[in-house]
Design a protein around this nucleic acid. Structure first.
Length: 299
RNA sequence: GGUGCCAUAGCUCAGUUGGUAGAGCAACGGACUGAAAAUCCGUGUGUCCCUAGUUCGAUUCUUGGUGGCACCA
């Protein structure tokens, strides 16, 4: 029987976790997280990791399995997740992948091109140059990879710096290393998107932030405060709390900003997922229809 | 009750010596390959409170309302 990865995606707060528990129970499937923040320990409240009951209801993978101080990238994720899937598919015909990080989902389903890893020293140097003489970096990129220079968002330091980083480390133009062709996986992929009317989604997000505060987000953030400069903590829910701790904003303002920034994040996710024509969209309550769809494809 | 000030975008406000208007924030749209809950780009969404005048033309000036604020009673 063909192995199938059912990918459950959607904006933050759409109810992916609850859906995944229902589907996992129905199919006896394990759950692999595709969330770029939930795999850190100590961030359970702010990243809305599955709770104890949900974790007990189905085997979860890539949840709280890394330290906040670890530098973990989508490249690491692709490698680890594929290895893990290989193992899971020995025991299961169906595995669920659940989360909202579009880039990580793409890394899992289509693979990343074979590009050099980030080099911290080089990156730091490029970032410094960007701050002082951005024109210099742009000129350098234009010389090393004129094609990409034309296409890239030249106002976005992350794009420019990464492209240069790849050019310098590989000795080849960034764009020639970007084949952009999806890699063939040895399992089937079925993408299920969870969606809600905008107003409802935003109301759920607001409510969930209040629930996070009630569940101890402030205390959790306080524990993580000394680590606030780490990448793992460049995250909605924590940054705003850190600003509150620094005295820049009040607690109420922090809560409002977390709500606003979560809504903006949800919008960005919606834009990203909207481009993927493979996604079958459902409301969070339509688990019966999802089960029928999955059953029809797997049997 | 009297006097004065104010009324312009979702909010706070600017402005038009009379030619139907613009900032910040919010909102909305988009991009995205090893930092991605990150990072970046784009868009003004408007009975200029109502009414009657003056005028070729009024959001702008004048009359009378309405609402708000302040002061005096």
């Amino acid at each position: 029987m063909a192995k199938t990865l059912v990918v459950i995606l959607g904006p933050t707060g759409s109810g992916k976790t609850a859906v995944s528990i229902t589907l996992a129970a129905r199919f006896g499937a394990p759950i692999l997280s595709t969330d770029s923040r939930q795999f850190y320990r100590g961030m359970a409240v702010g990243t809305a990791q599955p709770d104890a009951a949900q974790l007990a209801a189905a085997p979860h993978h890539m949840i709280a399995n890394h330290e906040v101080a670890e530098h973990y990238t989508c490249g690491d994720y692709e490698r680890d997740a594929l290895a893990l899937l290989d193992e899971l598919f020995r025991e299961h015909d169906l595995v669920l992948a659940v989360g909202g990080s579009g880039l990580y989902i793409d890394a899992l389903c289509e693979g990343l091109d074979d590009l050099p890893e980030a080099d911290p020293a080089l990156r730091e140097e490029l970032e410094r140059t960007w701050k002082e003489e951005p024109q210099k970096l742009l000129a350098q990129l234009q010389a090393l990879d004129p094609g990409y220079y034309e296409r890239v968002d030249r106002a976005n330091p992350k794009r420019v710096v990464r492209a240069l980083e790849v050019c310098l480390k590989s000795g080849a133009p960034y764009s020639t290393l970007r084949r952009g062709k999806p890699q063939q996986r040895d399992f089937n992929i079925l993408k299920i998107g969870i969606t809600l009317p905008r107003e409802e989604l935003y109301a759920r997000i607001d409510r969930r932030v209040d629930e996070m505060m009630a569940a101890g987000l402030e205390a959790e953030a306080r524990t993580l405060y000394p680590l606030r400069h780490l990448n793992a903590l460049q995250t909605v829910g924590y940054r705003e709390m850190f600003d509150y701790f620094d005295g820049t904003i009040t607690r109420d303002q922090a809560v409002e900003l977390i709500k606003r920034n979560s809504r903006r994040y949800a919008k960005r996710q919606t834009t990203w997922f909207g481009r993927d024509a493979q996604v079958h969209w459902f409301a969070p309550g339509q688990t019966d229809t999802m089960i029928a769809l999955i059953g029809g494809i797997c049997d």
